[in-house]
Simulated scan of single mutants.
Amino acid sequence: MRKLAAGNWKMNGSVEDLDEVTALIAAHPAPGCEMLLCPPATLLSRMAERAAGSSLMVGGQDCHAKTSGAHTGDVSAQMLKDAGATHVILGHSERRADHGESDISVRAKTIAAQAAGLTVIVCIGETEAQRNAGDTLAVIGRQLEGSLPTSLTTAPDGLVIAYEPVWAIGTGRTPTLQEVGEVHGFIRATLTKRYGEAANGLRLLYGGSVKASNAAAIFAVPHVNGALVGGASLKAADFGPIVLALAVS
């Protein structure tokens, strides 16, 4: 299984920030794991041009479930691919909160993105209130049930699950390693019940305040096959050590 270090630039970045991409590529010509950055749509094609022929892959942060039509402001999976994307993040907690995305809509987008040939990173995670109430695994189970396709229609590496506890995103707080292991073990078991042995090939990422200082410890947890990184992916000097930690894990 090829491990994945994915960076989500969120609503950040301008053309001049693409110099960070050039620096990242130069520092990691053969990183020993898959390396991905997902910029805002305004930078996608230009980042893909910078990354052409390198070890870096480029992805989108969302897509519409339809291939085209009267959907002002939206971007289809086919458009992402045409712009140079190989991946797309779907169901991020910020999309679920800010845009009211449901598990059902995430599933529809996932199916559409896979049909377009993109690797999909589906995000799941509990709020702090849900964790404090002891509902973490129940919430994760519901999100997996509702957000994922009923069956695997692509190779296992075409679907990635990112566990991001909502309360850890951008806060500097992280679950304990035991808590990360509990959730990732639950996700793996749940996926195996749903998809059978093919689930062993699905990569499970952890996300939520991942940085150079904690990356190695997180990657040592069973069933953690990489990371979805937010703020630390904006600078090559911050993202690079995370890539290296994953490569040697």
Rank of each mutant, 00 (worst) to 15 (best):
P29A: 13
F239M: 12
G181K: 06
S151D: 14
E197T: 15
L234A: 05
P156H: 09
L24A: 06
A155F: 03
I25V: 15
T176A: 15
A77M: 09
L144G: 01
Q178K: 15
T192A: 11
V122H: 02
A51V: 09
A237K: 13
K66S: 00
I218V: 15
A112S: 14
R95P: 08
G141M: 06
L148V: 11
P31Q: 05
K193M: 08
M79Y: 04
C63V: 08
L159W: 05
A115G: 05
L159H: 07
E34N: 03
C63P: 02
A236I: 01
G59W: 02
L24C: 11
I140G: 01
V229I: 13
G226P: 06
A116F: 09
P149D: 12
K81A: 11
E179Y: 01
I121C: 01
A113V: 10
L24G: 04
V166E: 08
E20L: 03
V75S: 03
T67R: 14
A138D: 12
R188L: 08
V224I: 13
A41K: 01
R96Q: 11
A51S: 12
A216C: 09
T86F: 11
R2L: 10
W9G: 02
E20W: 04
A168F: 07
E145S: 15
L90S: 09
A189H: 13
K193G: 13
F239S: 08
V221C: 10
G172F: 11
I89W: 02
V248R: 14
N12Q: 12
K3R: 15
D157C: 11
R188A: 14
G146M: 01
S54G: 04
E101T: 07
G134P: 08
C38S: 07
D82I: 00
Q130L: 07
M11V: 12
P31C: 09
L24D: 06
L205S: 07
F219T: 10
G158H: 14
E182N: 03
Q61N: 10
L24S: 04
C33S: 11
R50V: 09
T136Y: 05
A116H: 03
P175L: 10
V120G: 02
T192C: 01
R96M: 03
R131E: 12
L24E: 06
A227Q: 07
Q130A: 15
G231M: 12
G226F: 05
Y206K: 01
G207T: 02
Q143A: 07
G170F: 03
C123S: 01
P149T: 10
N214Y: 07
P29S: 14
L144D: 06
F186M: 06
L177E: 10
V160T: 11
G201C: 12
R131M: 10
N8A: 10
T154N: 08
T86N: 10
D19Y: 10
V15M: 14
V15S: 12
L37E: 08
G134I: 12
V139H: 06
N132Q: 15
S105W: 13
S105T: 15
V106R: 09
